[in-house]
Design a protein around this nucleic acid. Sequence first.
RNA 1: GGCGGCAUAGCCAAGUGGUAAGGCAACGGUCUGCAAAACCGUUAUUCCCCGGUUCAAGUCCGGGUGCCGCCUCCA
Length: 487
Amino acid sequence: MALHVYDHVTRTRRLFEPIRPGKVGMYVCGMTVQDKPHVGHMFAFVACDMIRRYLEHLGYAVTHVQNFTDIDDKIIVKAAQEGVDFRVVSQRNIDLYHRYAEDLNIRPAHLYPLVTDHIPEIVAFIAGLVAKDHAYASGGDVYFRVRSWDEYGFLSGRHVDDMRSGVRIEVGEAKQDPLDFALWKSAAAGEPGWDSPWGRGRPGWHIECSVMATKYLGPHFDFHGGGRDLLFPHHENECAQSCCGTGQKYVNFWLHNGLLFLGDKKMSKSDGNFFAMGDVLAQFPAEVIRFFLLNAHFRSQIDYGEERLREAGAAYERLRRGVRRLAERRASGAAPVPEGLLSGPGEALAKAVREHRRRFFAAMDDDFNSAGAIGALFGLVRDLNQYDAAAGAELLDAGPLDEAWALFGEADAILGLHRDGLAGLTAVAEPVVPQAVLDLAAERDAARARRDWAAADGLRAKIAELGFTVEDGPGGSAVRPAAAGAD
RNA sequence: GGCGGCAUAGCCAAGUGGUAAGGCAACGGUCUGCAAAACCGUUAUUCCCCGGUUCAAGUCCGGGUGCCGCCUCCA
């Protein structure tokens, strides 16, 4: 099976074929940096990162462009409130984005264009639309004439005349039609602005993406990502401007990720109904958050909650232990089997590894189904554990173990399971235990040595009171912090 | 009012017409002085309901019910 991608317009999965052989152009709608990023924002970028990584795994040279919309009404308001230049607000949030993106193991885009660095191009693009009569100046504003494009609405599946009934569309005196939207907005006194043929002003919301995507990826490119909530009006408008401006098809595949939900409400900045990324990162490891986000299909809505994150943490640990165990088994190097002489369990494992590999890539090929792919990984963990139990300590069927290791390696490169790759995944963090607790543990060991179980159990309770758990293993007892919510 | 989506075990969740992935939790087992941890195993005759198409439907079609999103700023 080859990569198939869901095409929102036809509502079917289509075989992916790049516009230019071997190359992929991908534009991701970045943040309007009016506020700090929340988990929902970062989900969109994690999803696109996973998609990019898979395309790269398939051998495509991907050009990933992700903008920052660094000027808009809310940024202006916020800057005015704080009494600072708008750039202070936008840059602060851009910096936060980069920090969180690094934590979440998101590969940096090749380009992060800023709207305010592209004003001349934007003005030129708008002038082109005006020249073709797809747009008109009115007062100091410029509006896109929605009815000048017959196909308007094809992306979001709506009809221009149905939207008429929408009571909330207000007729601004400057607009000729309530559906028209601003390409250029005149600046009030004291507001940031740039000179243009229509007077001093700034770009409207949608135009920046059309201009920057076209500039860096050409008028027609392969993938355009962003949250499902951008479908309308943002992407519909963006598409209309682009198609009218360049006269070409704009995007081959739209990658709209599902939105995060809290209970039954959408996570949303404007509703104050969101989890700031920084707060979540303070509570859960970044790898667990990423794993959680990729453990559902990217197009579906995700149920967000701390309980979900805890479950994801437990699942992620199971995966880690599986990989770690495999690493240990391979490192032990005990009695490798000569090639072609696999043990019974080795034979079974070899077969299982191939089956899980097939499942992993079939899932990824099916519209980047990372959830299905992760399922295959857990299947591999189980079979590896069964092999461990069946083969005993002395056997080492190097072939299938190497194949399993290779599959984990590829999976990690695609899913970005850990920032330090397989090495990070197999690493064990040494727990920090205070000396007082260690002393109690030593006392307890002594009690156990003289088979004084009552004293030993009493000491264990005392240690538990201090927030630590004792585990007796074959090699003696170990103390670690009691399981917290996040671990 | 218009457009669209979703409904799979206690919970989360995948599922490309061919006989229900995976995770969490629970329970049973191995191990242990007892535990814990770890590992193994078990847990949906059935996929919201009713019809239909088909040799075969969770998957397609029609109808119903419920939940949700968009139509306004939004990842």
